[in-house]
Amino acid sequence: MITLSHITKTFPASRRSPAVTALDDVSLTVARGQVMGVVGPSGSGKSTLARCINLLERPTSGTVTVDGEELTALPEQGLRSARRRIGMIFQQFNLLDSRTALANVEHPLELAGVGRAERRARATELLERVGLADKLHTHPAQLSGGQQQRVAIARALAPRPRVLLCDEATSALDPVSTDSILALIRQLTEELELTTVLITHEMPVVKRVCDAVTLLEHGRVVDAGLLSEVAARPDSPLATRLLPPAERLPDAGTASVVEVTVGDGTTGSLISELVRRYGVDVDVVGGAVESIGGTRFGRLQLAVDGPADQVRGALDHLALAHLELQGSTR
């Protein structure tokens, strides 16, 4: 649905700063119906990437294709109508203070030349859909951050776009509003069959709503993949961010402590298998189990105790089972 191909964006040197390469040969594909998270530290080029998708920033080189249409090849007029098929929401909401919620949602329809009655009907329907049926005639200043972002989502969806870009959409919100906005984005993506790109610096946001994720650092793609895939590659840069390993393995006396990463709820069977086959004692001394991309993943610290050769056998078994091992054998 969205294909970025070898995108480079360089901001020329100015009097105040030297030239900056914000994006360096970035290629990215978002499948239809997917929620793609783009994560990275601040200054990694995430926002520039989002702005390159609807060409608010024109890439220095590379091509952007959305829904089969190469945007980078379009003339001004074509680009404007293409942008109507790409909704965008922002960290600071960017609603017009002079307009009511309803008039804000009508704005993109006005620009597209939709008649008054139809505009009003569509805007009302959308505001009801995002749960603001009672705030139609309220100005943004009288709304909470979460409510303002809901209006912004309704506005972005008014021209029936195929794509939704979210640039740090929850970064200015409190945790409760963040949760409800993320749930809304997920729900609307499914109901309206959108393809969504979610720019964020917060890993929990990715865990909550994304199907796929791309990690940017210094303008380059460092890691990418479906969430379930990257979480299963425990040493990948993304997995260590999704499920951070223990900083220090807990001390368990004479036992050998190892950290393993397990997927899809196999924790229980793993432990019982070790006990059965190697006759060792296995204790879970720490760890976390989380649902990522609909699959349960855990990073567990296991204390394995027993006669030395049996412990070795058990640890070899873990290594053979392609589970990440790190730790000490005493």
């Binding site: 609807n54 608010l56 404007r80 109508s81 293409a82 942008r83 109507r84 790409i86 965008m88 922002f90 600071q92 960017n94 609603l95 017009l96 203070d97 002079s98 307009r99 704005h107 993109p108 006005e110 620009l111 597209a112 506005r155 021209p159 870009l165």
Partner: peptide, 28 residues
């Protein structure tokens, strides 16, 4: 706020639309 202009451009606004529907009303 420049973000308001950016939002309008992202909606496919022409420059004169930005002046007419964003800059002038917001600065009223």
């Amino acid at each position: 706020t420049p973000g308001k202009v950016e939002a309008a451009l992202a909606m496919g606004a022409r420059r004169r639309d930005v002046v007419r529907t964003v800059l002038l009303p917001e600065a009223r």
